[in-house]
Write a protein that binds this DNA or RNA. Sequence first.
DNA 1: CGTATATAAGATATAAGACTCTTAAATCTG
DNA 2: CAGATTTAAGAGTCTTATATCTTATATACG
Lengths: 144, 144
Amino acid sequence: MLFSKGCTYAIRAALLVATKEIRDDRKFVPIRELSEELGLSFHFLTKILQQLTEAGIMESFRGPNGGIGLARPARSITLVDVIAAIDGMSLFSSCALGLPGCGEQTPCPLHDAWAKRRLDLQRMLEKTTLASLARELATHELRN
Amino acid sequence: MLFSKGCTYAIRAALLVATKEIRDDRKFVPIRELSEELGLSFHFLTKILQQLTEAGIMESFRGPNGGIGLARPARSITLVDVIAAIDGMSLFSSCALGLPGCGEQTPCPLHDAWAKRRLDLQRMLEKTTLASLARELATHELRN
DNA sequence: CGTATATAAGATATAAGACTCTTAAATCTG
DNA sequence: CAGATTTAAGAGTCTTATATCTTATATACG
């Protein structure tokens, strides 16, 4: 799998928050509401979203009318931001064959081909923001 | 991680067998020799290579002077063949967000961008054979 | 202030992946 | 045939990822 499960949950939840913020003009959404709409475990999602707040991507408030919301404008939050907070950046730096120290200096046989593609993937995920995804969701009839 | 650890071990071992076949004109190599040269657990590597023999990629013989060798010419064994035998093909067909049923009909917001890149990755890994990698290893000074 | 609501944090449980160990089966050599 | 060598197969262990449960802590509101 490209991303861990937790990472895919984080992306889906963050996108849903962005959608609600834009479409319904709501700032804070209870995690319970997110978990129910996405069909995910409430407790598990809570733990994952906590990592996003620690990373400064989201902010949370406890108590009644509390919930979680984007800490920055949706157009300034990229998928790489979310991925970095949950899975780290190793996907974009590590060797396809898992060889430590593989790089320009001492490349493995797959290095050039993979390095080129992982960089392209990173660039794409850096260009993709929660706002751009939310816009796509709104215009086309896409699943989330 | 892109591939499972077992899958990376399988690729590295298969490539080493191909190298020995070409360079030293040896048909069967004991797994113990492979595991020692690659710094991997003998028992674990045995189990993984067993999957390659089951998949018809390698063939094995027991007893003294036994070992494991390529079942077909190295130029006809692609990395996708090895990957399919160990990890399966899900990397090349599954949704980046892990959504079941994501596809052309009901795409997720990331579908187009990822589908394009995973296909490119698959094409590249289909074009890469054990023979072409072994050739690169021989001409350049690459690590394995 | 007291109660309800919501996230935070930590402990615990389950599942999957990675790895090890033991025994069996096959094959060669003398 | 006997013994050595090597893969095959299965059980068992360790580690990490995934998921759940429980207990704090903060906030709103009557």
